[in-house]
Nucleic acid binder design. Structure first.
Lengths: 207, 207
DNA sequence: AACATTACTGACCAAACGGTCAAGTTTTTT
DNA sequence: AAAAAACTTGACCGTTTGGTCAGTAATGTT
């Protein structure tokens, strides 16, 4: 039985090895998806034996779920930061910038999440319907208030969020396609996307 | 050996069964991804035996590739239709509408494609770097011409296409997430997304 | 040093999977 | 009606995969 289930107190080795395993698993899962990944692949990547991996995690699914839970926290963090009292367009542009930076700096996490959602969110559907839904609802109210006060144009907040998520994560999840289209151009897609997206959304939001 | 490889002439039964198999495979592949799908799942879905499936296709990969090739044609069709001589914003809005309709009417195809790209496009990378890249380059020139002539604002055509693809396909690929956020609202996401996206892109494009 | 706990592994197992094949059935052709 | 071609399948095979387990090694505790 994996220690994660039976013991509360963790040893130094447990923390180290758990971290190594999760790091390797993120590599593998984000490249091949859950069902395309094998414990052996993770074991090789981590330089550990397969039984050793299963000593720390009950099974393959447990590794996946641990990764997804860790991910969701940091994933929603930028959304939390949207502040009603600051200038609306500044706040939205900051949010876009943060989401784009996350896509650039954590592409594996983005792909892991995309894979999970594409397959119907078998592991995080409750979180989507709970945490995510509540948070979006809260922030949507802020957007609507801004609209009512004439600070921004009257737009649907939900679709605004969908569009921001879609456009920013696109550069991580579909990087192969982006690279294929831009192949000879040397500029970093993320760098040129940033002003483009900020302009697009701020133009739309102007009252 | 599969008839598809050895024979040029196809019989009535071959056409029927091939169609049934591809239809079932699209269901399965779009739900579970390539590696998460099994020939048995496709066989069950198609009400055929596994050896019977392998009588028409050499192997699992051949089914997948056939689906992707069929898909790519129809997928790029709306992009072909962009016409330099029509009003720019009308053309872009028509393109958005077509892409959104495709996401609504062919969500399985959209998910199949998303899965393939997420995994690094192992089966269609050459097409991305060839057909897609060339077509986008051609249409990007049209956009740039419009900009030069002052008909639309000066924006990066590549990022424009990325944004349109990302936002429209998002409603098919991430439908679970969209539904989770909108769960109590009875409106069809695609219906409300259409005016939102058209407004967003046309506002940005106004000179 | 003796003991207890934690960490690790080679060998193994059952199930799932992609794919084959010989032998049968059905359809088409003559 | 007979021969040929196309179609179908149960049984089977080798490999991969998730997971187990008994036994060993390392680490920590007294």
């Amino acid at each position: 039985m994996a220690r994660s289930e039976t013991t509360k107190k963790t040893t130094r080795i447990q923390r180290q090895k758990t971290e190594i395993i999760l790091e390797a698993a993120l590599d593998v899962f984000s490249d091949f998806g859950f069902r395309g990944s094998t414990i052996d692949m993770i074991a090789n990547r981590a330089n550990l034996s397969k039984p050793n991996i299963l000593y720390y995690f009950d099974n393959k699914e447990a590794i996946h779920i641990t990764l997804l839970e860790k991910l969701l926290e940091t994933w929603l963090e930028p959304l939390h930061e949207i502040n009603e009292n600051n200038p609306p367009i500044d706040e939205i542009c900051k949010y876009i910038e943060q989401k784009l930076n996350m896509a650039r700096d954590f592409p594996r996490e983005s792909k892991l999440f995309a894979n999970e959602i594409l397959q119907g969110a078998p592991h995080v559907l409750p979180e989507l319907q709970g945490t995510l839904r509540a948070l979006v609802e809260k922030k949507a109210k802020i957007i609507k208030n801004w609209s009512k006060q004439g600070k921004i144009a009257d737009i649907d907040p939900n679709h605004l969020f969908f569009s921001i998520w879609a456009t920013t994560q696109h550069y991580a999840d579909f990087d192969i396609q982006v690279q294929s289209v831009l192949n000879d151009e040397t500029v970093d897609p993320f760098q040129s996307a940033s002003p483009f997206l900020k302009k697009m959304f701020s133009t739309m939001l102007e009252p």
